[in-house]
Amino acid sequence: MRRILIPLLAACAAAGLAGTLYLVFYVTKLEQNLFFNQKIFYWHVPNWFMLFSMVFLCGGASIGYLVKRDPKWDDVAHAAGELAVLFGAIGLVTGSIWGKAAWGHWWIWELRLTTSLILWLTMLGYALVRRFAGPGSEPLCAGLAIFGMVNVPLVYFAVKLADKLGQASAHPKAKVVAQLDASMKGTFWLSVLTFAAVCALLFLVRIDAIRDARRLRAVRERGLDAGILEP
């Protein structure tokens, strides 16, 4: 199953990336207000979709792990947590480039930007703890992911409410997708699918590696416990 799925996803992702690049630059129309700057939107937004799906996958799997104590759930949370950091980083970089072009600033303290940055920092902390806490720290990491996930709406509302007296947000709203014309919309959703394929591919490869490492460790530990292997 995996043997077919992984090359298939890789092919889809490669074709999708090449295809969306072509569509973005040669087929879609220029946007009326932002002109050429808007092109980055096709790659920027799907990354945020992936970040948030990975964060909630990580948080959900962590709850599953704390309830069931099955290491499979921990593997899912581990892989999802790492991918959240990756997609968050891409989203922040592409967003900054867009921000510089559209607003003249690399960064502004706006609702979506602030929320995403804090979420990304949380996941970075999660990845750090994953890396340095060593074996036996799985429940700790699960706790961290749950706290981070619960924190997302709190941060969102805190920033939103703090902003309510300020000016209207400079960041495009979610409804811009609905206002796109057909070719733009098609390209956008193709791009989302492409990044979903990239994400699924990385997720599968990573979770296989994590699971294999865990199993190898378990076999070795069983040997040590049984006194067959000498340390």
Binding site: G125, L128, F132, A133, G136, S137, L140, N151, V155, F157
Partner: peptide, 22 residues
């Protein structure tokens, strides 16, 4: 949670502050 971890002095603020943001 971090009590058992070697690098807890540095990790504590790193993981704590984002949660304290709200």
């Amino acid at each position: 949670m971090l009590l058992r971890i070697q690098s807890r002095d540095v990790l504590l603020p790193v993981v704590l502050y984002p949660i304290l943001v709200p």
